[in-house]
Simulated scan of single mutants.
Amino acid sequence: MSLDFTVVPAFLGTIAIGGLWTIVITLLSAAISLAGGIGFALILLYGHPLIRLPVRFVVFLFMGTPLLLQLFMIYYGLSQLGVNLPAFWTGVAGLGLHYAVYNADIIKATIRNVDVGQSEAARTLGFGRIATLRYFVVPQALLNAVPQLGNNMIILLKDSALLSVLGITELVLASQLAISRTFRPFEFYITAAAFYYVINLAMEFALRWVAAKTEEIR
């Protein structure tokens, strides 16, 4: 059977909506992964042992198991315990937590690389430990971590396709819906790949802009 891309235009609206939801999922999950990464990093570096141990277990669990399994565990496991979350928010939270543990590793390393003199100078100015971390150490660590965090965000974009297994109508599931109507899988998967490529290029451009701005700040 030859390729026939004439069937694609009729479903471009459906695929574009899927692409928009992919962007929304990526941004929300990236925000969770960044906030969670900062929180995990600070707990692992400065938290009380009783708090560090559960966080270390969570990090070990999320690093040592596949993302797809984690999504199933959160979605079906929580519902079995009586916690019924919408599939969309379950997917966003699962994706965000998965990348939060990887971001935590990056942020931990960049925090350790912040010059100790910065903390000492803040203390001499009267800042407490929490204020020193908030206003001096963490912001500098995040500036240094921009390239690595940006790479994780691009990988997160690609992994958002796994949320289709939960019935979330992102780019892949939108393409599958079109395929179920036309029985033309290759044409629509190529179209989906083109959408991912465009989104990826836009993200890379935005991340390069952010990286350039952070260099100016430094």
Rank of each mutant, 00 (worst) to 15 (best):
L71H: 01
V92A: 10
G117Q: 09
I130C: 04
G126K: 05
L95Q: 07
T124D: 08
I106H: 05
T132D: 08
V83Q: 05
D115S: 15
F127C: 09
R112T: 13
P66R: 10
S79L: 04
T90A: 15
L95P: 03
R123F: 12
S79R: 13
E120Y: 02
F88S: 07
N113I: 10
H98D: 02
S119T: 14
A100T: 10
M73A: 15
A122W: 06
T110Q: 14
D105R: 09
V83H: 05
Q80P: 02
A131K: 12
V83F: 15
N103G: 09
E120M: 03
F62W: 06
V92E: 09
V92W: 11
N113S: 15
P86M: 05
I107D: 03
L81Y: 04
A104T: 05
I106N: 04
D115F: 09
G94K: 05
L125A: 09
R134Y: 05
V83G: 04
A109W: 00
W89D: 06
D105W: 01
Q80F: 13
A93N: 01
Y102C: 10
N103T: 08
V114Q: 07
A87P: 02
L97I: 12
T65M: 07
L81R: 01
P66G: 06
L95F: 03
T124L: 13
N113V: 13
M73K: 02
T132M: 06
E120N: 03
V83S: 01
A93S: 08
G128R: 03
Q80K: 13
G91V: 08
A104C: 08
W89V: 13
D115A: 15
L133N: 12
G126Q: 08
I107P: 07
K108E: 15
L125C: 11
L67F: 07
T90V: 13
T132P: 03
H98I: 00
A109P: 07
D115W: 10
L85F: 01
I130E: 08
G82S: 11
T132S: 12
V92S: 05
G117Y: 01
F62V: 02
L95R: 06
A122Q: 08
V92Y: 08
A122V: 14
T90F: 00
Y99K: 10
